[in-house]
């Protein structure tokens, strides 16, 4: 009887430890999988312009069919990146950055920008990044992560124009 109790307690204790480790690991594992598949969308430290989400889209869960996404999977271990993008008029647009643990550590949208074009330097936290003509520096808490550009398609007849504008965004080593 006592032996059964000891075995059961040991199994449950180990199960709880595995559970806790698993819960903490899930975001890193899922983000790591997305980053490791960067080759499917053009590679690391370069921008990939995803097609408009539909029922066949499987890259990211719960995509919005009203937005078009451009994504840059980044790896800052070799140095900072230069981000550049036109900001379309009269529609929602944002640039957001996520670390390797899924935290959204930076976001800026069209309402916060008074110009029709933005440039940023993306660098590792603590890195003394050279500026890009005074471009603001975004500091990432991890070497790897994702920068995502979102553009809202307000109406179908705007799609081609907005699609062309968002494809002018770039993400490349500084």
């Amino acid at each position: 009887m006592r032996q059964t109790f000891v075995w059961s307690a040991a199994i449950l204790t180990l199960a709880v430890i595995i559970h806790i480790i698993g819960i903490f690991a899930v975001p890193n594992v899922i983000m790591g999988t997305l980053i490791s598949r960067a080759g499917d969308v053009g590679g690391v430290n370069t921008i990939a312009h995803g097609k408009r989400a539909d029922a066949t889209s499987r890259q990211i869960v719960r995509p919005s069919p009203d937005l078009v996404y451009s994504m840059c999977v980044f790896d800052l271990s070799e140095g900072p990146l230069a981000l550049s993008a036109p900001v379309p008029a009269d529609t929602y647009w944002s640039l957001s950055a996520f670390d390797d643990n899924t935290n959204n550590f930076f976001v800026v949208n069209d309402r916060q920008i008074s110009t029709d074009h933005v440039e940023f330097v993306l660098a590792r936290d603590g890195y003394q990044a050279p500026t890009l003509g005074g471009a603001p520096v975004i500091l990432s808490p991890s070497d790897t992560g994702v920068v995502l550009f979102r553009t809202l398609i307000q109406s179908e007849d705007q799609f081609e124009a907005l699609n062309q504008i968002r494809q002018q965004a770039t993400c490349a080593p500084l």
């Binding site: 899930v26 899922i30 997305l34 869960v61 719960r62 957001s96 899924t102 995502l148």
Partner: peptide, 10 residues
């Protein structure tokens, strides 16, 4: 964070 990573990544 784990639920969002699985069901609402990014």
């Amino acid at each position: 964070r784990a639920i969002v990573a699985r069901r609402g990544l990014l």
